[in-house]
Amino acid sequence: MEHRHLGRSGLRISEIVFGNLLYPHDSTPDETVLGALRTALDSGITTFDTADIYGMGRSEELLGRALAGEPRDSVVICTKVFFPAGNGPNGSGLSRKHIREGIDASLRRLRTDYVDLYTAHRYDQETPLEETVLAFADLVRAGKVLYMGVSEWTAEQIGEAAGLARELGVHLISSMPQYSALWREPEARVMPACQELGIGQIPYFTLAQGVLTGKYLPGRPPPEGSRGGAELVGGRAAFMRRLLTEDVLGRVQRLRPLADEAGLTMSQLALAWVLRHPNVAGAVIGASRAGQVSENAAASGVKLDPAVVSRMDEILGPVVVHDPADA
């Protein structure tokens, strides 16, 4: 497993980041989740991402159990705050109250005294940015948080927050956008702005919810037990419908010969494509089976031939999302 600096900070994270994502009412057995986490450790993954909202705290609790026997200085623990994870009108957002209460609850579940990276899961339109960044700064001074990150913020929001953070002595070092060979929105503004500011990317949905693994075939129903075959609601359903079209699936299958020629699986090809970007520090994976974790971890260190990247872009070009408003 190779490691990269996160932005211009001194923090090094594994190129493959394990995302312990559980949906609010996820029924995946504890032992299945713990088994995937143990395999991640055995595969050399040192960086683990979660959030208080994942599984309504269950994701953090299981991650805490899995890492309990690991030396604290050998792993990087990342969690997030914003979505409703508490009670009452102050149980969500990025107010000082919710951030302070959120970190204490997360630390209890994670069984640790501090998190390496604490991420603002979304931008809070109802709380002054100064209040949010100052609350993060106080957590850094208290030793509960080492670095600050953001997720799905615009380039303008990131720039303003970075300026405030510098004034307060806080290191804003990461951005977590959705990014894959099929979803390239961050390339237009977020990545260039972050590159200039010394902020690194830790993208999620790097396999486009499994579509880039090639397991969804055109003209056939989604595999049983897959995300595409599950009952989806809200934004997740719309996102999967956009991906599970005949055109998208057909073009993804045309990537298989490229993967074979490179000696890679489809998943490894997709992850190596993400990791080729100079502003990306680590690619988040999510897996429920040990074999998937090991396979994805092997994408670390893979250097794609520029000709392969060009061919991938050519094949996928007509179905790539650059601006969600046009999708």
Score class of each variant (00 low, 15 high):
Ile103Tyr: 07
Glu126Val: 00
Tyr54His: 09
Ser92Cys: 05
Gly169Gln: 03
Met266Glu: 05
Gly163Asn: 14
Gln178Ala: 10
Gly69Cys: 15
Leu207Ser: 03
Trp183Phe: 15
Pro223Leu: 08
Leu168Ile: 02
Thr46Tyr: 00
Tyr179Met: 12
Arg311Asn: 03
Val302Pro: 14
Gly317Pro: 05
Arg241Glu: 09
Val211His: 02
Glu295Val: 11
Ser300Trp: 14
Ser267Leu: 09
Asp42Cys: 12
Leu172Lys: 02
Gly250Ala: 14
Pro89Met: 11
Ser226Met: 12
Gly234Asn: 05
Glu152Thr: 06
Pro203Met: 08
Ala181Met: 04
Glu224Trp: 08
Ala325Phe: 14
Ser9Ile: 00
Thr206Ile: 05
Val308Glu: 02
Leu117Gln: 09
Asn296Met: 00
Ile199Leu: 05
Ile99Pro: 03
Thr206Trp: 00
Gly91Val: 01
Ser92Lys: 10
Gly301His: 05
Trp183Gln: 11
Arg58Gln: 15
Val145Met: 14
Leu168Val: 01
Leu62Cys: 12
Val284Lys: 11
Pro278His: 08
Gly55Cys: 08
Ala270Ser: 04
Gly44Ser: 04
Phe83Glu: 06
Leu117Val: 10
Phe205Ala: 08
Leu244Val: 03
Pro318Ser: 07
Leu107Pro: 00
Glu167Thr: 08
Ser226Ala: 11
Thr119Leu: 14
Arg4Ile: 11
Gly317Ala: 14
Ala327Tyr: 14
Ile202Glu: 13
Met1Tyr: 01
Pro306Cys: 09
Ser151Thr: 14
Pro128Trp: 15
Tyr114Asn: 12
Ala36Gly: 01
Met240Phe: 01
Leu107Ala: 07
Gly55Ser: 11
